[in-house]
Amino acid sequence: MTDIAPVKPPPVKPTRVLVTGADGTIGRPVVEALLTAGISVTALSAAWSAPSRADRVFTGDAADESLVRRALKDADAVVHLAAIPHPGLGTAREVFVGNTSATFTVLNLAGEAGVRRAVIASSINAFGVPFNRHDLTPAYYPLDELSPVAHDDAYSLSKWVDEQTGAWAHSRWGITVIALRFPLVRNLPELRAFAARLRDNPDELERLAREGWAYLAMADALDAVLRGLTRPITGMHTLLLAAADTLVQEPTDLLLDRFAPASERRRDFPGRTAPIDTSAARRVLGWTPQHRLGDPICLETSA
């Protein structure tokens, strides 16, 4: 059995970060943000669509112990983004086993190596309702980290298990883990184009009610990742992220009346206020979303 690494204070600013999933939608911007912040990057991805600017680059599976051990050399923090990002991109077993084994491998070996900080990508889908095949809506709005779970697909279950793995890794190794529950994350022009397509897609509009029509600008996602790496905190924290408004032009309260009338509403949502509670991210990371699509109906935001 490997000896437990001695507990060291968490770094104020890491010197080298291993980024898994470094060729992904969020992975490439994370690498660039870290380099801009003066942090060295080791980049790991299953494949590459273009060269990475990281000074150390590894190609392969984040569940490969030998590969991850080599990639962790000199790293004092990890951003784990590698995953199959949708239940339809593999069999249930491929999605669940692939995602959870990668997360366990990265966090376990990081802890073993004495790494004291990890940010991992969870999902707004981690509570299971958004992809559930049954006729469900969330138990209540605003969605938060304690929303009751109802898992019916392998992807959502894998993200929820990843969070439990983060708690295990903190208990086992003393590593601080921040699991960020991302909604749809894109640059604002892409988000505006997606929002425009929603107007002609009532089925998708109804499905997205289960995740509060949430989105997040890439700049705000990167800010959360960097804060997760540098804030002077300890423990395991699961944090839900979202912009202050929704993807939809209609007022949120009217949308909830239409698509989720049976769900408890714990407060009102004026204008296009997102029915998402991000107060935990504000409390733990000092994070608040700075970018929004804009609201021609009402510019009020949640308290």
Results as ranks from 00 to 15, higher is better:
261 P>Y: 05
49 S>Q: 13
51 P>K: 02
253 D>S: 07
243 A>I: 06
193 A>T: 14
59 T>I: 04
198 L>I: 06
132 N>S: 13
139 A>V: 14
8 K>G: 03
71 A>T: 07
83 A>T: 03
141 Y>N: 04
111 G>E: 06
177 V>Q: 03
87 P>S: 09
269 F>A: 07
241 L>M: 11
254 L>Y: 12
275 P>S: 10
291 H>R: 13
110 A>P: 06
100 T>D: 04
110 A>S: 12
2 T>P: 10
148 P>I: 11
40 S>P: 02
52 S>T: 15
242 A>R: 03
148 P>N: 10
46 A>K: 12
256 L>S: 01
31 V>L: 02
286 G>T: 12
300 E>Y: 03
27 G>D: 09
163 E>K: 04
155 Y>V: 03
199 R>I: 11
237 H>I: 09
240 L>Y: 00
206 E>H: 00
22 A>V: 05
176 T>R: 02
195 A>T: 06
49 S>I: 05
252 T>E: 11
282 R>M: 04
251 P>E: 06
78 V>D: 04
254 L>G: 01
54 A>Q: 08
274 A>H: 04
257 D>E: 15
285 L>P: 02
285 L>W: 08
145 E>F: 08
119 V>G: 00
137 T>A: 13
248 V>Y: 05
122 S>F: 03
273 T>W: 06
249 Q>M: 09
133 R>C: 03
72 L>Q: 03
141 Y>Q: 05
115 V>T: 12
141 Y>H: 01
303 A>V: 14
119 V>I: 09
213 W>E: 02
196 A>F: 02
230 T>A: 12
174 G>Q: 07
252 T>N: 08
244 A>T: 14
201 N>A: 13
48 W>E: 04
224 A>S: 11
237 H>Q: 10
280 A>K: 13
89 L>P: 00
240 L>K: 06
115 V>H: 00
30 V>I: 15
103 T>A: 10
214 A>Q: 07
213 W>I: 02
156 S>G: 12
227 R>Y: 05
47 A>S: 14
102 A>V: 11
299 L>F: 02
74 D>A: 13
40 S>F: 01
24 G>K: 08
56 R>S: 12
159 K>G: 02
106 V>F: 05
74 D>Q: 09
136 L>C: 05
52 S>C: 15
130 P>T: 09
229 L>H: 05
27 G>P: 02
289 P>R: 04
285 L>I: 12
163 E>M: 04
226 L>A: 12
276 I>Y: 05
53 R>Q: 12
259 F>H: 15
189 P>W: 08
208 L>S: 01
152 D>K: 03
5 A>Y: 08
124 I>T: 09
213 W>D: 06
26 I>S: 08
10 P>W: 08
208 L>R: 15
36 T>K: 13
62 A>P: 04
289 P>C: 08
219 A>V: 10
77 A>I: 03
154 A>L: 04
298 C>W: 09
160 W>V: 00
7 V>I: 14
211 E>R: 15
112 E>W: 03
190 E>R: 10
257 D>Q: 13
218 M>C: 09
153 D>Y: 02
54 A>W: 07
80 H>T: 07
13 K>S: 10
23 D>M: 01
9 P>G: 10
277 D>S: 06
123 S>T: 12
38 G>T: 10
167 A>Q: 11
232 P>C: 03
213 W>A: 07
121 A>D: 03
51 P>G: 05
6 P>G: 06
